[in-house]
Amino acid sequence: MKRPPMVMRVQIHGKEGKFPLWLPLFLLLPLALLLLIILSPLILIAITILRLRGRGNELSPVVRASLGMLCSVRGIRAAFDVLCSMPGLRVDVRNRNERVYVSII
């Protein structure tokens, strides 16, 4: 079963020192859900406007793409899928003095 990421681990080592950070993403998810509920009337208005104006033909493709993805259930689902696929992502870049490490668990 797919699950959203729980923790994001960020480590930045520089000349000035170390900066380790554990971001509890599971605490941010209820906030994101709350934000989605608050924004849902605006999303609904945007969907209605887009439909009435022929899906915003006069808008630039980039704006249309962004609005289209935001204002569709498929878009929200696809974005959630991307979020749920993130656990396991790891980026580690380092040289003599610096290191950037990002891991999503």
Partner: peptide
């Protein structure tokens, strides 16, 4: 520079679906 990147294949799949 030493670089080590690990990308879940499921993320590639979801990104392509998006």
């Amino acid at each position: 520079e030493r670089v080590n990147v690990r990308v879940p294949v499921s993320l590639i799949r979801s990104g392509m679906k998006l």
